[in-house]
Amino acid sequence: MQVNHTKKLVSNLKRATVIRGKWNGTKYHVIHKLGEGACGVVYLCERNGIETALKLGTDSARITTEVNVLKSFQRVQGKRLGPSLLDVDDWVTPGGITLPFYVMEYVKGQELATFLHGKGSEWLGVLLLQLLMDLGNLHESGWVFGDLKTDNLLVTSPPPRLRLIDVGGTTQIGRAIKEYTEFYDRGYWLKGSRKAEPSYDLFAVTMIMLEVGGRGRFERGSDPRQTLERKLQQATALKPFTPLINNVWAGNYQNGLEMREDLVNLLQRRPEPKKRNMPVSTRTSRRKKTKKTSFATFEIGAIFVSVIIFYLIYMLFFL
């Protein structure tokens, strides 16, 4: 009963409620609710005329875990891996209950699907480049985002920029994924483990693509892998990205930057005048290409050598 009561309290704060920090004494005025997560509720608040996002929770341990992640991002803030952390404190409610909270920079933006509505697939490509850059940096600093989903993405503008907002699932590489959402989870689709590896995030990226490029989320059905293949075929908007997605599903990328590289090649490719476009440089085809070149070099070399031999014999004969 007590727990339910506290949860209700946390998610029903009225406008102009004052949240005063027990340790730092900073006052925040509630404007409205921004969203509700697994371990707390995020409110838009105002502090000295500045808008901030305040996450109020019931479980001190989980709030602390998230703060730890935000703090470690702070150390590489030059690369901007998530919203910056402004304050961490407790609020003692008028009823005497102590609730933990932390305050972040308020990221104001549009949902991904709203932003993409009515725009061409080049915009999806551009935003994906940004996302993969952020993920790549995250991976390089030893983290996996984990709970990557459209709810945790916002497009700020101008200029349009995709931002990661909820870091609750962020996990150190090599550990077990802390938090996930089934639709984006490769384990759920029988496409791999729940170990925090960069490729875990990349799978979630492909699911975001299927969601916004197709018709939203879907059930896994009796044969999850087949369902994925079918949905990919049905999503006509994703046609240019099909080889990229298949590469992720085949586990061909080690981290976000590798996938980004292929996406860059794919987006910058100009339509060729004569033949129909050949698929992107998939990892395998690239390998084949290199093989082909080396074979060609070998051929040229062989011809060259035989010409010289022929010439030498010719010279000897006539000497």
Partner: peptide
């Protein structure tokens, strides 16, 4: 207890808890 520690100190304790959980 954990809740009565200042927020700064909680972070360190939580890291220990997470390590153990893993």
């Amino acid at each position: 207890t954990f809740e009565e520690l200042p927020p700064d100190k909680r972070g360190e304790v939580m890291e220990v808890v997470e390590d153990l959980g893993e």
